[in-house]
Design a binder for these strands. Structure first.
Length: 585
RNA sequence: GCGAGUGUAGCACAAUGGAUAGUGUAGUGGCCUCCGAAGCCAUUGAUCCGGGUUCGACUCCCGGCACUCGCACCA
């Protein structure tokens, strides 16, 4: 019986062997297996169509010849049929579904099966990366939420993941900020809410320097002093950063985010000279208008649009530190792949960065890690414009999460008024923040996304609340009957699935492995969200149609097994997305 | 101007070149003496326009139109 975690992988292997046995262009046959519309079975292989085309023969007979060579192992597990122009359809037999679900009974088995995909690889994920001295706002949401989910997916599928928060702690904004701190700092305000005070001071410095060139000059001097290591400025800088990190941490805890490294731009201060010299010596950069720049003559745009790696005043900019960062990640972490979870509007920058790094490392004989810009769209308000407050300011992430929690509290109170106040607050925090995370993740990251409280916190549709409800409902089945979930005794003696509801649910459950592969390969968590939503729907239909706690011990055992596995996969999936779950709600 | 991205029901979103383009909301009609109705079942409704490649195109290519975004020392 067919028990591998990766069913599609197994089918592809078997089809390759069968194609060879059938004498089909040895070695070059690509099975093209994918999950199919449930009307046509569970999986379909489309590869025969392309092969028939290349051979100049009709596809149906070839498909039949391949099927005739399939191993007994496969035929024992699947109903196999040739259909349509030449698709090979595979429908999992109920006994196989039961065997798979029995073999994958806990997160240990799921993780063991999943971890083959990226074993031995090191992936650095650069995400969140806010600027110090400013509060995180809604613009920081997606990078944090998507980056965390992607990191968890990669770790679950076997990679060593280095989560690095590349904080903006060194830019030119510090000149103005330090200038203002020295003249207008309000110690009481710092004690109350440090980051709000530093944010205010930055605005003071910015306004003053724009109005008065003399202030601008003084601010620039403060920056030069800081960069030269002036103790007073350095201490102030340190203080600002410490306060900023503490404020960020509060947000990260609510969103279930943790980093392995927080290496901000300042960390690379002493690492940029290598960038200047190696790029210059390798002939990759040139001088233009006093700046050190890189052009890419082969590129339609970057042949005239330069990447500035050193400003004309001799200072570094973010292109410089980004280049130095790639080198560090290669040398220190031995990164095979580096992901940048950053707004798609910075696409040009990353394209230039990757081109430059590729040439630089090729010239210096280094391995070039795979570099990927995991881009995402903008969060829009209901007016279709970037989300802002009514007064046109950025919405602070803290305020956003507070409001989500508050709205969820009203809902919980309405639905479960008998729960203790304290518990309703806890539930609301998890539902509220989870709803914000899920709304962001459930949509293709590449597109802009329309922010709507009503749709987000709603109980209907593809929302966090719906999933958390389905999960809490399953937990309550076990709780109510004094059973523990996944207890082998409760599942003992389960026979094969029979009712349409049971079979549909079991078929959906075994497709978790393919969903995981898809979401991880594309770095698109929304595939996992969609799957979990469909799984929860399948469970609800099953649960509505088939009573679980029945007299017949055999029927009861197999239905409890389905409940337990649905719970397991919902828990695993939501955890991979970074959401916390509930016992009841 | 140059470049990139996006156009799918009233609204919000899916569709890893595959079979009859899925779902949610909103609309309509059913289902609680029954393990959580925050639920389930049924039903109405869409691929911007024009060419092309392909056995097969929302998907790939070319040309329009519309919207969004990016383009020299901010990140």
């Amino acid at each position: 019986m067919h028990l591998a975690f990766d069913l599609i992988g197994e089918l592809e292997k078997a089809l390759r062997a069968a194609a060879d046995a059938a004498g089909l262009e040895p070695g070059s046959f690509s099975p093209g297996v994918r999950t199919s519309d449930p009307r046509h079975g569970d999986f379909q292989a489309n590869g025969v169509l392309a092969a028939a085309k290349r051979a100049g023969k009709p596809p149906q007979p070839i498909a039949k010849a391949v099927v005739a060579q399939l191993s007994g192992d496969i035929l024992e597990s699947f109903e196999v049929a040739v259909a349509g122009p030449g698709f090979i359809n595979f429908s999992a037999k109920p006994a196989m579904l039961l065997a798979w679900l029995t073999a994958h009974r806990s997160s240990t088995e799921l993780a063991a099966g999943a971890s083959a995909a990226h074993r031995g690889e090191t992936w650095v994920v650069d995400y969140s990366s806010p600027n110090a001295a400013k509060q995180m706002h809604v613009g920081h949401l997606r990078s944090a939420v998507i980056g965390e989910a992607v990191s968890r997916l990669l770790a679950f599928t076997g990679a060593r993941v280095v989560r690095d928060n590349h904080i903006g702690d060194w830019g030119t904004q510090y000149g103005k900020l330090i200038w203002a701190c020295k003249r207008h700092l309000d110690e009481e305000a710092v004690a109350r809410d440090p980051i709000a005070e530093f944010e205010r001071l930055y605005k003071v410095g910015n306004t003053a320097s724009e109005a008065d060139p003399k202030v601008m000059e003084e601010a620039r001097n403060e920056l030069v002093k800081l960069q030269a290591g002036d103790p007073e400025n350095l201490a102030l800088w340190q203080r600002i950063n410490t306060a900023s990190l503490a404020a960020f941490q509060l947000i990260y805890e609510r969103l279930g985010i943790h980093f392995d490294e927080t290496l901000g731009e300042s960390f690379y201060n002493d690492k940029v000279t290598r960038v200047y010299t190696e790029l210059a010596q390798g002939g990759i950069s040139s001088q233009s208008d006093g700046a050190q720049v890189v052009f890419h003559p082969e590129h339609p745009r970057f042949k005239t649009q330069p990447m500035i790696v050193r400003k004309s005043d001799g200072a570094a900019n973010y292109a410089t530190t980004d280049l130095a960062t790639i080198l560090y990640r290669l040398e220190h972490f031995h990164a095979d792949c580096i992901l940048y979870v950053v707004d798609k509007r910075q696409g040009d920058h990353f394209e230039q960065l990757f081109l430059t790094a590729g040439k630089w490392f090729a010239k210096t004989g280094r391995k070039v890690p795979k570099l990927v810009h995991v881009d995402f769209g903008t969060v829009l308000g209901e007016d279709g414009k970037p989300l802002k407050t009514r007064t046109g300011d950025n919405i602070k992430l803290k305020d956003l999460l507070d409001e989500a929690s508050e709205r969820a509290y009203l809902l919980v109170t309405e639905k479960s008024p008998d729960f203790p106040e304290e518990e309703r607050r806890q539930i609301a925090e998890i539902v509220g923040t989870g709803s914000v995370q899920y709304a962001d993740l459930s949509q293709n990251r590449a597109s802009d996304y329309l922010f709507s409280w009503d749709k987000m916190i709603s109980l209907d549709g593809n929302t966090a609340a719906y999933l958390l409800y389905a999960l809490a409902r399953i937990r309550s089945i076990f709780r109510r009957h004094g059973l523990s979930c996944g207890d082998p005794a409760a599942e003992a003696g389960a026979d094969v699935f029979q009712t349409p509801g049971e079979i549909a649910l079991a078929r959906k459950l075994v497709k978790f492995s393919d969903t995981l592969r898809l979401a991880t390969e594309t770095l698109c968590p929304h595939f996992l969200c969609l799957y979990l939503y469909e799984l929860a729907g399948e469970f609800s239909s099953f649960y509505n149609a088939d009573k679980v706690i029945v007299e017949d011990p055999v029927v009861r055992a197999r239905r409890l097994l389905l409940c337990a596995r649905t719970l397991l996969i919902l828990e695993t999936g939501l955890e991979l997305l970074g959401l916390k779950t509930l016992e009841r709600m």
